[in-house]
């Protein structure tokens, strides 16, 4: 039983990293949002499984929050934003897929090399979880750096936050208050960013952040 539960937890956390890779090469906004919703579902599964094997019932609440907010509410809201902005046909390529994927692999390797020796004294499950969580965080950052569309940067940020939740649930004894506040703050961030998206759009007729640079007089 111990080894099976370990394997399932490993599978779910690994799935999260895999979905992060999928996020990296989505160049259309609707598919990007769909994959993000998929990541939230996988996250909810991983958290729920942690709740089951740790016997920590409050983690079920975390899983439910993840499912409700990140798998349903946030993608739906972003869908509507994309629709209303009319940018669903935009294709963005800042850095090509190949180098991005290679960089992502390098980041996963880095987080494994870093985390495993650091946490040598912990139990194996927590170690794997932390390594995967760090990978998800770094991949989210990488996405924010390589995209130029503001919506995809928001998705990168949310996916980074998924990694944080995974790390928090992997470590035992994280109180529910922390998770609720994290989820809440992310929601507020979404609202703020949504408002800003419309502001940017109103002003520059595009959500390409490069327009901001032009307005600051850096590009002719």
């Amino acid at each position: 039983m111990v080894s099976l539960s370990y394997d399932i937890a490993h599978l779910l956390a690994g799935g999260l990293v895999l979905v992060s890779f999928m996020l990296l090469y989505q160049d259309r906004l609707y598919s990007l949002l769909n994959v993000f919703a998929l990541q939230a579902v996988v996250l909810a599964g991983a958290v729920a499984w942690q709740a089951h094997i740790q016997g920590a019932h409050h983690l079920y609440v975390t899983a439910a929050i993840a499912l409700a907010f990140k798998a349903v509410l946030v993608p739906w809201a972003l869908h509507r934003i994309v629709e209303r902005l009319g940018v669903h046909r935009e294709v963005e390529t800042v850095v090509r897929i190949g180098p991005t994927m290679l960089a992502g692999m390098g980041l996963v390797a880095l987080s494994v090399v870093l985390m495993l020796p650091l946490t040598a004294a912990e139990n194996p499950l927590a170690r794997e979880d932390l390594a995967f969580a760090l990978s998800v965080i770094l991949l989210g950052l990488l996405m924010m750096v390589t995209r130029r569309n503001a919506v995809s940067q928001v998705v990168g940020f949310m996916s980074l936050e998924n990694g944080l939740v995974l790390a928090a649930t992997g470590a035992r004894g994280m109180p529910l208050v922390v998770e609720i506040s994290v989820a809440f703050s992310v929601l507020i961030a979404l609202i703020v960013i949504g408002v800003f998206l419309f502001r940017i759009r109103e002003r520059f007729d595009t959500v390409d952040v490069a327009a901001l640079d032009e307005s600051r007089g850096e590009r002719p």
Binding site: V94, L110, M144, V145, A210, E218
Partner: peptide
Amino acid sequence: LTIRRYLGLVFVSLI
């Protein structure tokens, strides 16, 4: 710098 360059700067220094 541009926003992406700032993000990149943070990212590279973190790495």
